[in-house]
Amino acid sequence: MIFFASYSPLKLYRKIGLSRSIGLGLLSIIIISTVIGPDLVGHDPAKQDLLHARQMPNAVHLLGTDHLGRDMAARLLSGARLSLSLGILSLVTAAFLGISLGIIAAWFGTWTDRFLTSFADAILALPGLLLVLILMASAPGSWWLLYIGISLTLWVEFFRYTRQRSRIILAHPSVDASKNLGLSNYFILTRHIFPELRNGLFTISAFGIASAITAIAALGFVSVGIRPPMAEWGLMMTQLLPYWREAPFLILQPIICLVLTILSLHLSVGGFHKK
């Protein structure tokens, strides 16, 4: 209750500004509907009903049905679940990897730093999607390879930021003072380094999830990502593309979902530098 008392919506809005309010509002709507939406819709996203294919939105099928008569709302939500969960999972993995290796590189310096930095540069030299494509080529449609591939492209950003910032922080006299006073490495990590990294990591995380979701959709669109009959936004776009003239409202739906998700993620961390 204290939380609500001290942060009335108006105060919160003033504190974080217009664009972030919109972003966070949109993001919460997307997350809430992803979590509880499938139960509310009540249709099976894989159940075909060829007699009622390509229906306009109606009372039974809120967003209509696709070319195989599957409920669009159920498929979109199922796709959202897949994209968001895979995106978040890859991001957590990448963040864990990138932050720990970044701090290790900054802390130990010398050859540890050189080795890790050249490794990160080597990954950075490959276009992100290409790396995932190479992995996916060995076993198309594998969920695990998709996860590993996306995590592998995302961690570099975390690594580079963490290493760069930590090197500056560790050279600061206050760290020298803390070491001199006998304070533990844990103190330096949690009181010197993490507070300074926090805001930047938020931004990188939001952009990271966004690019993970885009990558999943892009791979689905070129049919190397998630396989049918699973519902996935990029895959849905490919499948609905032939019908764009007769039923444009169908292909527009996954596109709008993707755009709104990416937009909400980007907006929710925008303007972090402003007080």
Partner: peptide, 18 residues
């Protein structure tokens, strides 16, 4: 820990964000 230091610029001797 019995040799201690005092720094030139006081604000830089303390972790700034805590």
């Amino acid at each position: 820990w019995e040799i201690q230091k005092l720094y030139q610029d006081p604000p830089t001797a303390f972790p700034p964000l805590i």
